[in-house]
Design a protein around this nucleic acid. Structure first.
Lengths: 107, 107
DNA sequence: ATCATATATTCGCATATATGAATTGATATA
DNA sequence: TATATCAATTCATATATGCGAATATATGAT
């Protein structure tokens, strides 16, 4: 009863369901970076970043470009960044609502 | 090193990381529905739908309205629907790329 | 060939998640 | 009161996921 497309859709969402991977995407949203750069920027171990990138690559959320020893990663489709941005706005609105609420209760 | 916001962002994504919940959101995107309606429409057990709705409610992805015995669910923020729509487009583009690829290989 | 650097993979463990079954609670109605 | 309906919760179990540590692979330089 559950469509194949929804199955794939859920898989992409699960792929984004890790704070580390969200940070990686955010870091990549302003241009491509190597594994090492990401590792240093985010303060995560290289192996760990590589694992997350592997998962993101499998689902084609990121794409790669090889240059010598380095592998440059970028977000595969700008719409993914747009979707993330929308979700972040939802989050912000949620937080604002909560603030509103605590203020009202406090008054 | 990983921001609180990214943590929350990932939580929302994980919340959407279930095909059943994606279907529920799709079903709710054209207006509010009760648990029973969803259960029948999606062909899932009531208890199961209720569980999923409970998860969606916790993360405030859906909102409820009570009317007599019934509880009507709706998507809490239209931006969530927009984000889902974007991700679905990404999916479609991915599938098209794959088709393109298989055609090329086949030729 | 050796070494250094960049990236990927594997393993083991702890934790998280999904699901079905059974139960409970609340409301309506005969 | 008895019963049917709708929804939520609890529990047990199977499965998936995240992460660190160690190891492997690949490329480039000496």
């Amino acid at each position: 009863m559950i469509s194949q497309v929804s199955q794939l859709h859920a898989e992409i969402c699960r792929t984004l369901g890790s704070a580390a991977r969200i940070e990686i995407l955010k870091a990549l949203s302003d241009g491509e970076k190597t594994v090492n750069e990401l590792s240093k920027t985010l303060g995560l171990k290289q192996a760990n970043v590589s694992q997350h990138l592997s998962i993101l690559r499998q689902r084609r959320v990121v794409a790669t470009r090889k240059e010598g020893t380095n592998i440059y990663y970028k977000v595969a489709n700008p719409k993914i960044i747009q979707a993330c941005e929308l979700m972040r706005q939802v989050l912000i609105e949620q937080l604002q609502e909560t603030e509103q609420l605590t203020k009202t209760v406090g008054a």
